[in-house]
Computed example of a mutant assay.
Amino acid sequence: MLSVENAYCQVLATASLLPTETVPLAEAVGRVLRQTITADRDFPPYDRVTMDGIAVRHAALAAGQRVFPIERTQLAGAVPEPLLNPRAAVEIMTGAALPPGTDTVIRYEDLDFGDEPTRQATLRAALPSQGHNVHRQGSDQVAGTLLLAPGTVLSPAELAVAATVGAGRLTVTRRPRLAVVSTGDELVALGQTPLPHQIRRSNAPMLQAALGPKAA
């Protein structure tokens, strides 16, 4: 008699790789990836602001400046415009691109704001370090980096990675086709009334449910 380990090895030795198919991203969860996914650009693709607040030049802070007039406001998704006055600030939102001429973001919680029309922000917390609250371009991944390798089992997290690089369809291993065969002279169909020496065929529905809706 073969041991379980030997039997398992023999089964694997005769197993063949299933063919591939291309499916929409939303249908790829739980499938096995059969293509390479690489970063199509740096991630993040720009110096990204990580807190709502103001963007300033750290050199102004280092020189002792603590009050900054608000030059303008920049929302996430807006084209970043340069800071014109090196002693001013840009009010900025989480996710926005860091404006040229600034290098540090001070969060709202560390500021006091004056009233319109001469609105200004005053730092009331400790001096932040240069680059504070800035997620630097390429600090997660640089363009061309391998993100997902063939053989990866695709969970929702991997689907998010694929979506990040614009992969709306993925090449994956085709699902195996399964057949459940239940035999025995003592078995009768579910709709039949068994005789005293018979039982209903219950294993087949259980196995089909365990294997998923594709089993037949």
Results as ranks from 00 to 15, higher is better:
residue 180 V to W: 11
residue 52 D to C: 11
residue 73 T to Y: 11
residue 215 A to S: 04
residue 98 L to H: 05
residue 69 P to H: 02
residue 114 G to F: 09
residue 43 F to R: 12
residue 211 L to W: 07
residue 95 G to L: 01
residue 183 T to S: 10
residue 15 A to D: 09
residue 77 G to S: 09
residue 99 P to Q: 12
residue 79 V to R: 15
residue 154 L to K: 06
residue 151 G to Q: 03
residue 17 L to I: 13
residue 56 V to Y: 08
residue 189 A to F: 09
residue 161 V to P: 04
residue 202 S to Y: 02
residue 58 H to F: 02
residue 202 S to R: 08
residue 167 A to G: 06
residue 163 A to V: 05
residue 210 A to R: 07
residue 42 D to N: 06
residue 53 G to V: 02
residue 180 V to T: 12
residue 214 K to I: 13
residue 170 L to A: 02
residue 16 S to Y: 02
residue 188 V to S: 08
residue 15 A to R: 12
residue 139 S to Y: 08
residue 184 G to R: 10
residue 10 Q to N: 12
residue 34 R to A: 11
residue 15 A to V: 11
residue 176 P to I: 00
residue 60 A to V: 06
residue 155 S to Q: 08
residue 193 T to L: 05
residue 101 G to V: 10
residue 141 Q to P: 04
residue 167 A to P: 00
residue 75 L to P: 04
residue 85 N to T: 13
residue 186 E to Y: 00
residue 2 L to A: 12
residue 196 P to E: 01
residue 153 V to C: 12
residue 200 R to G: 11
residue 61 L to I: 05
residue 175 R to N: 14
residue 169 R to G: 09
residue 138 G to Y: 07
residue 131 G to A: 13
residue 187 L to K: 03
residue 95 G to V: 04
residue 72 R to C: 01
residue 136 R to C: 13
residue 144 G to K: 07
residue 201 R to D: 14
residue 12 L to I: 02
residue 190 L to P: 08
residue 209 A to H: 15
residue 206 M to G: 13
residue 57 R to W: 10
residue 189 A to L: 10
residue 169 R to T: 14
residue 25 L to M: 02
residue 147 L to W: 06
residue 214 K to L: 14
residue 139 S to D: 02
residue 27 E to R: 03
residue 82 P to M: 07
residue 27 E to P: 03
residue 76 A to T: 04
residue 168 G to A: 09
residue 8 Y to K: 15
residue 72 R to W: 09
residue 58 H to L: 08
residue 149 A to V: 01
residue 194 P to S: 07
residue 115 D to K: 12
residue 206 M to E: 14
residue 124 R to M: 06
residue 138 G to F: 06
residue 146 L to K: 02
residue 182 S to W: 03
residue 115 D to M: 14
residue 186 E to G: 09
residue 186 E to I: 05
residue 79 V to A: 13
residue 74 Q to C: 09
residue 127 L to T: 03
residue 212 G to D: 13
residue 140 D to G: 11
residue 64 G to Q: 01
